[in-house]
Design a protein around this nucleic acid. Structure first.
Lengths: 339, 339
DNA sequence: GATTGGCACTCAGGATCCCCGAGTGCCAAT
DNA sequence: ATTGGCACTCGGGGATCCTGAGTGCCAATC
């Protein structure tokens, strides 16, 4: 009972602070939320909450502000993901449906997510590892420059250029193309390295240098590059907040330019319906101590293929951002899977 | 003679303002640059320059600040593009050389350009129109989902997904693939639409709906999408300036998220060695009245394929940015062409 | 005619000061 | 446990002042 009210107070503080962005005091709290007790009582609770580290005051004679720990508690209490309205659902669906290729799907998703949440949106490209090789192509751009293209059954296309020391004959290229297609066509990406064992040796000794290079490229495409790409959008939303906020714009923008950092932010693709929330210091990325990340995995069919999420200040609206991220992930999965 | 000094004064004002970001007064001018005259004389010149619209004062009792027109004059006077040091050249070359595919080349170029200039960098993907079809691929991802992939001899790869109403037989797909490759393989992109005339009719009536869709996709890839992509980087540089500057970060970031705007900013690929500079209002993009763009075209072999450039505040260092843009364009061209 | 020293004038921005009011902690009463 | 009362704190906004950089103009000089 007493504990219950404490939680209610914390929730109220987070609510108010998220909307007003200003430290919230005891009096304002009882006015805006009908807590049924007097400000003095609230003050006692607040003192307790502060002792426990959930809230803090910027200075004496100011209201309280949630700490990272406070947000964490708040988020953990958030059980029910509030569903979107049917209008929103329809908007999402129709917006994503018009995409013409995978790049377009990703671009639209990023845009959608950033517009809906008004935060910075991140969408990771579908991982190759769980999907299989739909097609592999080896073409020469010039006599010494070869392009290797891998097409996944997700519609993802990856390529890699390689320059050879000596000019390569077109017939050799055709030969390699045909034989490599035979070996890895239709196979799963994870199996590619294994399948290529002994592949090089099956060629004439003169061509081995070239074939080795091609095989290496294919392997890199299949393994290394497999989930390196993250699309980002809505960075302008970082400036939206009413000015004097703790976010260091420069450092955040810098961090967001690094693919590695983005991947780190999205974290491991979380399983099932669960939505990952990392608050402030919880994501240990340099320069992003004042930002939170809300992310989740999305599936193609019934296997998770990658993550997506949003990045914003710790005082974001967790409830609706979580709902939006969840919904977009679902619809993206549906778009990728259907037909 | 008198005119000469006026120009010198304007140049000096721009120089000082670019470095200090503060209105520059007559006294400071004679001290920092050896103009050989007294502050009073400079004041007369400044008054004249103000009459002519080249400079302005933020308020009485403040120094002068260049107007867009002033920058324009300054840039037009800038005849010699100062060459990079050999160390810089080597750095650029080796940095770009390690790229593994076209995406990587673009990404590295953007990163390089933004780091060198410390501005926001834009790099447009090589236009397809002037290059030719190296390879065309039609593969089915599922029975009703087809992927069309076009590979250009620049190494650029574009794809497009299409969903068909009815399931398509694999043999039909193979047939279309073979025949379309025959028709447009090795041909120039600009000629593709013409080459495809009558293509659909050569197929069995049952398959025409599908073939039409494929042909349409190919045409879109060859024509519409041809130069739609621009890579951007270094947005964090926008925040670098010493705080209270006239740039509206939000609107600039918003504008930079629109591909269309980016293309507009880069403008027509300018011919030859010329470097395009658009100052402030000269680029008529909403929200970017306080930014300038320095851009130029880059070539593959001897034909221009696209543009690249930087975006920054009007008080940027035009001289060195122009030099950097020029140099990077040259090296990018070289990387794309050689071998 | 161009240049220059002199001089009065302007005014943004920093420093200082003051005060208000939101907010707190504590205590005694209920 | 809750509440009303009360003294205390202190950030931030407003008003005021002042300084110094910078200007325009003019008369003197080259």
């Amino acid at each position: 009972m007493l504990e219950d009210r404490r939680l209610a107070v914390l929730r109220a503080i987070v609510d108010d602070y998220v909307t007003t962005q200003e430290p919230v005091g005891s009096k304002a709290l009882v006015e805006r939320h009908n807590l049924g007790v007097s400000p003095a009582t609230i003050r006692n609770d607040m003192a307790a909450l502060e002792d426990e580290g959930y809230i803090t005051q910027p200075h004496t004679s100011a209201g309280r502000v949630p700490t990272d720990l406070g947000y964490r508690m708040f988020v953990d209490q958030l059980s029910t993901v509030k569903p979107l309205t049917s209008a929103e659902r329809r908007a999402i669906q129709s917006f994503l449906e018009d995409a013409v290729d995978l790049d377009d799907v990703m671009a639209r998703t990023v845009r959608l997510l950033s517009q809906v949440t008004r935060e910075v949106a991140l969408v990771q490209y579908p991982t190759l590892s769980r999907s299989s090789v739909r097609h592999v192509e080896v073409v020469s751009l010039s006599t010494t420059r070869i392009l290797v293209v891998l097409i996944a059954d997700t519609g993802r296309v990856d390529q890699r250029m390689l320059d050879t020391a000596a000019p390569i004959d077109e017939t050799v290229v055709a030969d390699v193309r045909a034989r490599i297609a035979l070996v890895i066509g239709g196979r799963r990406f994870v199996d590619v390295p294994e399948l290529l064992v002994g592949f090089v040796e099956s060629f004439d000794i003169h061509d081995r240098a070239f074939v080795t290079a091609v095989a290496a490229s294919v392997m890199e495409l299949a393994v290394e590059k497999s989930d390196q790409r993250v699309m980002i959008g809505g960075t302008a939303n970082l400036t939206r907040r009413g000015d004097g906020l703790p976010i260091n714009l420069q450092s955040v923008l810098e961090a967001l330019e690094e693919q590695v950092v983005l991947l780190k932010l999205l974290g491991e693709t979380s399983a099932g319906d669960s939505i990952l929330v990392r608050i402030g210091h919880e994501n240990s990325v340099q320069g992003m101590e004042a930002t939170s990340v809300v992310s989740t995995g999305y599936a193609r069919g019934d296997e998770l293929v990658a993550s997506l999420g949003v990045v914003g200040p710790t005082h974001m609206d967790y409830a609706s951002n979580m709902a939006s991220v969840h919904a977009v992930a679902q619809y993206l999965g549906r778009i990728l899977s259907d037909q």
